[in-house]
Nucleic acid binder design. Structure first.
Length: 555
DNA sequence: TATCAGGTAA
DNA sequence: AAAAATACCTGATA
């Protein structure tokens, strides 16, 4: 089939639902921002970026009330050729599917699944994994026992059908929470406009479906504040689940600083202290902990311990499987997921969609950068040749072990030294994946190293010196991925990372994005022509999607 | 009572 | 597919 050239737009739409975007095109940036709202970047070599639309990406767009007309018009505007009819048809079908299946409440014990499409109705009725939840038939659907709300949604999404859930939520036990105008440090405090918008978008949602879903915002843009704002808006008992104990304390401190809650209403439920209060903060590990492989996870009972009006899932992309399972049973509670990147390398995005909810709000990183809320950053990928000896080892190793050989390229130490010398005034973090490699770097370059083994007292000492400027260079292991108390830096040198993790790359860049007067620099060091280079490409996808450009240099 | 090492889990 | 980090619990030490 030949296609007529319509104009010289930057986008080529292919019939397999992938899009190719020409990066040198003058309208590249506009088109990239347009695609970000409903497509996923899958490849980003220098000149042509490849995107993919999936049912899930279209449902998230539909849940954000993005109309298909706008998407279709945008595609026409950017497309080089006439649009392939099958792609547009599929996209429209996926988009329109969201909202065709509606779950509503009919009584305290029963819900009704309505299928607003005569063709779809019998098809849904025939899916065995789904129809086992069906009770009596109604004119356009079935009755469902209230307790099956989560299981049904999860089963349907696995079968390829998203439900729009308008059953509403338990109010939960009330608790007056008011935001302070002046925080505990005496600083004026109000929500920034986008934070307020996020709270509103979550609370109201699209018409009647609000009250559960995900808010996607970069690190450092105030996700905790949005959580607190939401808790204040709902003013009910609140359970907050986060990743580690330091983060538990940070949530508590922020709640005390920014709301009128007193210490006595806030409880921590961790290994150190187990109190359940109207506002309770706990960790994923606490919830999933068990004494032995076969013992039950007793702490999951906390979901029903209080009459929660809101449950906040911090860093929702890390939510473990058992917490998903527990979440199916509490679909009547308001649920807020917070994350910087919706992507999970384990592919459980559909469970997040079904059980926590669709995306309710996001802001592109570059928008926040332009408005000065996060720092400007220049990203550079250095490609370094493998020395002869390592080259041979690399060639000999099995596929799975050669990554490490490439990652531990000894020349990286030399380049790191040169980069450090380049930044005489900056606060620099050198981050890597392998302890032995980091120990070698610390030894050769003579800077302190923090790993998981470093005692907390020692860490805090080093953090304090780094913060005061007494110490300018710190070498860190994966501890820095989630160390909430790590002070701000403006230069990061990434020696190695966890394979292709987009999440990790975003998290690490986020480390140097606190606003400051000088520009931030992010360097990522990879061995040229190895698997590491391919993994690096995958790591960068999310940030490229967000408008970051990686400059390539050769060493 | 507090702290630390060692084992286990995911 | 493998390495590292974390947090839980228990029991010993001071």
């Amino acid at each position: 089939m030949t296609q007529a050239i319509v104009d010289t737009g930057p986008l080529i739409i292919q019939s397999d639902h992938t899009f190719m975007l020409e990066t040198a095109h003058p309208r590249y940036a506009d088109c990239r921002d347009f695609l970000a709202s409903f497509a996923e970047l899958v490849k980003s070599p220098e000149f042509i970026h490849t995107y993919r639309v999936t049912p899930l990406s279209m449902w998230n767009a539909a849940a954000l009330e993005m109309s298909f007309d706008d998407i279709g018009k945008g595609l026409e505007r950017f497309s080089r050729y006439t649009l392939p009819a099958n792609v547009i048809t599929d996209m429209r079908e996926w988009h329109d599917l969201y909202g065709r299946l509606v779950l509503e409440k009919v009584s305290p014990t029963h819900l009704r699944l309505r299928v607003l499409d005569e063709v779809l109705l019998p098809r849904i009725g025939q899916i065995a994994e789904v129809n086992r939840f069906f009770g009596d038939s109604t004119a356009d659907g079935w009755l469902i026992a209230s307790g099956q709300r989560g299981d049904l949604k999860q089963a349907l999404i696995k079968a390829g059908y998203p439900i729009k859930d308008i059953c509403g939520y338990d109010a939960g036990a009330p608790l007056e929470i008011d935001l302070r105008d002046i925080d505990l440090d005496g600083q004026a405090f109000t929500l920034r406009d986008y934070q307020q918008d996020a709270v509103d978008a979550f609370y109201q949602g699209g018409r009647s479906t609000g009250g559960s879903g995900i808010i996607v915002l970069p690190c450092g843009s105030g996700k905790t504040i949005i959580g607190i704002g939401t808790a204040a808006r709902i003013s009910g008992h609140t359970l907050i689940i986060t990743t580690n104990n330091v983060s538990v304390h940070q949530w508590r401190d922020e709640l005390l600083a920014k709301t009128d809650l007193v210490a006595d209403t806030i409880g921590e439920y961790t290994g150190l202290e187990k109190t359940v209060k109207p506002v309770t903060i706990t960790t994923y590990q606490m919830l999933t902990h068990r004494r032995s492989k076969t013992a039950p996870m007793r702490n999951l009972a906390i979901f029903n311990h209080n009459s929660w009006g809101l449950i906040i899932y911090d860093e929702v992309h890390l939510l473990p499987a058992p917490v998903f399972r527990a979440t199916t049973a509490i679909q009547a509670k308001r649920r807020l997921g917070l994350t910087a990147t919706l992507v999970r390398e384990d592919g459980k995005e559909d469970d997040v969609f079904a059980l926590i909810g669709p995306k309710r709000y996001d802001v592109p990183w570059k928008t926040l950068e332009n408005r000065g809320f996060i720092a400007e950053a220049v990203c550079t990928e250095y490609r370094i040749p493998l020395p002869r000896e390592e080259e041979i080892r690399y060639a000999r190793e099995t596929k799975r072990r050669r990554y490490r050989v490439a990652a531990e390229n000894p020349l990286k130490i030399e380049l790191a030294r040169e980069l450090i010398d380049l930044h005489t005034e900056d606060h620099i973090l050198v981050i890597g994946q392998y302890i032995s490699q980091l120990e070698a770097i610390a030894e050769v370059l003579g800077h302190p190293l923090i790993t998981g083994k470093t005692k907390h007292a020692e860490r805090e000492k080093l953090y304090a010196r780094f913060k005061s400027g007494d110490l300018r260079i710190l070498i860190v292991s994966k501890v820095a991925n989630f160390a909430v108390d790590l002070p701000d830096a403006n230069v990061m040198i990434q020696i190695s990372g966890t394979y292709g993790s987009r999440q990790e790359e975003a998290q690490r860049l986020g480390r140097i994005l606190r606003p400051h007067d000088r520009r931030s620099c992010f360097y990522t060091l990879v061995s040229k022509g190895t698997d590491e280079q391919n993994f690096a490409l995958n790591r960068q996808l999310f940030l490229v999607e967000q408008g970051y450009k990686y400059h390539i240099r050769y060493y």
